[in-house]
Design a protein around this nucleic acid. Sequence first.
RNA 1: UGGGCUGUAGUAUAAUGGUAGUACAGCGGAUUCUGGUUCCGUAUGUGGGGGUUCGACUCCUCCCAGCCCAACCA
Length: 563
Amino acid sequence: METDLKPEIAGNFITHIVEEDLRNNKWNGKVLTRFPPEPNGHLHIGHAKAINLDFGIAQQYNGKCNLRFDDTNPIKENESFVTGIQEDIRWLGFDWEDRLYHASDYFQRMYDYAIELIKKGKAYVDSLSLEEIREYRGTIKTPGRNSPYRDRSVEENLDLFQRMKQGEFPDGAHVLRAKIDMAAGDMLFRDPLMYRIRHAHHHRTGDKWCIYPMYDYAHCLEDSIEGITHSLCSLEFEAHRPIYDWFLAELGIHHSQQIEFARLNLTYTVMSKRKLARLVEENIVKGWDDPRLPTLSGLRRRGYTPEGIRSFLNKIGVAKADSTVDVALLEFSIREHLNKITPRVMGVLHPLKVVIDNYPEDTVEYMEAVNNPEDETMGTRKVPFSKIIYIEKEDFMEDPPKKFYRLTPGREVRLRYAYFVKCENVIKNEKGEPIEIHCSYDPATTGGNAPDGRKVKATLHWVSADHAVNCEIRQYHNLFLKENPEEVEAGKDFLDNVNFDSLSIIENCKLEPGISGAKTGEKFQFERIGYFCVDPDSTDDKLVFNQTVTLRDSWQKIKQKMK
RNA sequence: UGGGCUGUAGUAUAAUGGUAGUACAGCGGAUUCUGGUUCCGUAUGUGGGGGUUCGACUCCUCCCAGCCCAACCA
């Protein structure tokens, strides 16, 4: 009972505010949040943090969360992104029900509100050029100056603004600005732009409008119109909050509370649309869904599960300090989930042929193997065993270090679910590399148990050579060589930190036959190696797997320490 | 003397005037037919100085460090 009620999102400064508001009945007990993506790109795990907060907080406090496309800039935005964004949010496990909105649905109301502000003397049409506006704005250290058009009469402003809307002027001829304070310390308060002229086709409103509202004016209205109670956004909008509040106060309409939190950063990757776009455009990765990218489509293709991602998101918490989360926590979270749900299978990535000399030829035994030791209900399967098998190259060493306890000349190990085998002989190539191992097996150890209670230090996975299914495996490593890809010498940029060995493709891997027919997206644990997911590049003839994440590997650590 | 914000173990977060806790990472060990999982143990922290208080991560003050703001982007 207690676990059912346990909130998924741990207490943080935002839940404190929401709870306080609920206690004070500030919004009549309502919680209404929104996730407001701009349809101009792909969602990444940083967005997932926001989505998880927006939807999660609503869920947790019996509220709702709207999905709203913030489509106020027709030049950058595009319907094609809308579908992908919705797909990603649904995949993550969130539902906006019938509350799918668009900022463009509110264009008329925004226009009417602008007229109201003009009439109040709080907005004016400015006819300065782009360069002049910039110059008049001043700098951080020096105050701005009033535009010569700042004191136009209400009538003139009304007339000009209406004509802007009617398309009488070319792009850039005029803008509508709020009349606030050109000397304000907060740069954003120096008469922010409300509307600009853009003779551009909008993906939803077509050519109906040629003036489009700017973020500072539009966003607060969108929230207000929808009756949003808590408007969560990232830290860089903190400086915008006074304007957000100013417009709503001047208009005297529903006043949502904007709350800012720190966006997610992850080690060894980048998290901005702009930088991700460069990686894609410069062909450093193969597309927006490249499994090395932190995009939701990339993570999905790589084999991450929504549950794993949400669990990660709930572990990292929410705060206002800029921070960078160790990607190891993401990996832990996905392993945690995959461990519970994936069927185990034996697969050899780098095959080494093993001949069991005293095993009869033309005999095949079907060994019973457990599908998931974490979940008995997943049952068992039969895996064929025969005289010639493959084991992992890494599991044999002719001259091993002390802590190596896998196969080595004269040593006995267990073949998982099969038999104890002992290495009798090694055949090597000209370069001295082992190419074929000859073993003897103990028929009494069938199934992998020794009746005399004899112990072996290692259990190896294997695949019967005659029955093996070939496949391609793609292993992924960090896309960047540095924890912080931005850490560069003067004159260089993050692309100089790209790890060009971030993808390894292995052909002719050997899998147990039961895996044939696996479908795109299906996930498995290859025992002793890691978690793998069937890639869409798979064909009827050849399976292609992505390595989602390796298993924890304490042998690697021991090896490192021995160096 | 622009404006705003933030500093808690290696990392991310909790504690809102009353024993500084959790997770990941690290280290050590137990169990194990996956060097996986699980379990046990362990080191490491309030940016710095002053002040208020019986008592300060928490309140005040000064300092230091970092981030955001000068798009007709969001």
